[in-house]
Simulated scan of single mutants.
Amino acid sequence: MSVPLSILDLSPISEGSSAAQALRNTVDLARHAEQWGYERYWLAEHHFVSVASSSSLTLLGLVAAATSRIRVGTGAVQVGHHTSASIVEAFGTVDALYPGRLDLGLGRSGHRRSQFGAEAATTRGGHPVLDAVTGRTQVRDGVVVPPPFDPRRITDRAKFLASIEALQQLGAEAPEFADQVAEVQALIEGRYFSSQGVELHAVPGEGIDAQLWLFGSSAGESAELAGKLGLPFAAAYHVAPGTALDAVAAYRAAFQPSEILAEPHVIVSADVVVAADDDTAHHLTSSYGHWVHSIRSGAGAAEYLDPTTASPLTPDQHRLVDDRLASQIVGSPTTVVERLHALQTLTGANELLITAITYDHADRLESYRLLAEAWAA
Rank of each mutant, 00 (worst) to 15 (best):
Q115C: 04
I208W: 04
G171K: 06
L161C: 06
A275N: 11
S55H: 01
S56R: 00
E189D: 13
T309H: 09
A250L: 09
Q344H: 10
E373P: 09
S109M: 02
G242H: 05
R108M: 04
S367C: 02
A182W: 02
Q21V: 15
Q344P: 03
Y237V: 04
Y98C: 07
T26Y: 00
L346D: 11
E259V: 10
T308G: 09
L365N: 03
V198Q: 14
P307E: 11
E189F: 03
V273P: 00
V330E: 06
Y192C: 06
G348A: 13
R191I: 12
Y98A: 05
V3H: 10
A326D: 13
I70R: 00
H127E: 15
L353N: 09
D322V: 15
V51T: 11
S327G: 11
L161T: 14
S195I: 12
Q256S: 13
T345H: 07
L371E: 13
S195D: 10
L225W: 01
Q138W: 08
P312L: 12
F149N: 04
L200V: 08
A275C: 04
P232Q: 08
A121F: 09
G142R: 12
V184W: 03
G37T: 01
G207P: 12
A262W: 00
I7W: 07
T58Q: 10
P264Q: 09
A19G: 14
A186H: 05
Y304E: 02
L62K: 02
H283C: 05
T123F: 07
A349R: 06
G216E: 12
G190D: 07
A270S: 14
T134W: 00
A166Y: 15
P12D: 09
I154D: 04
S84A: 15
E189T: 05
H82S: 06
R319H: 14
L62Q: 11
A120L: 14
T314A: 13
E173N: 07
D103E: 11
L365Q: 14
G227C: 07
H318P: 06
Y368V: 02
D363G: 08
T309R: 11
T83N: 01
A76C: 13
L212R: 01
L313A: 05
A172D: 14
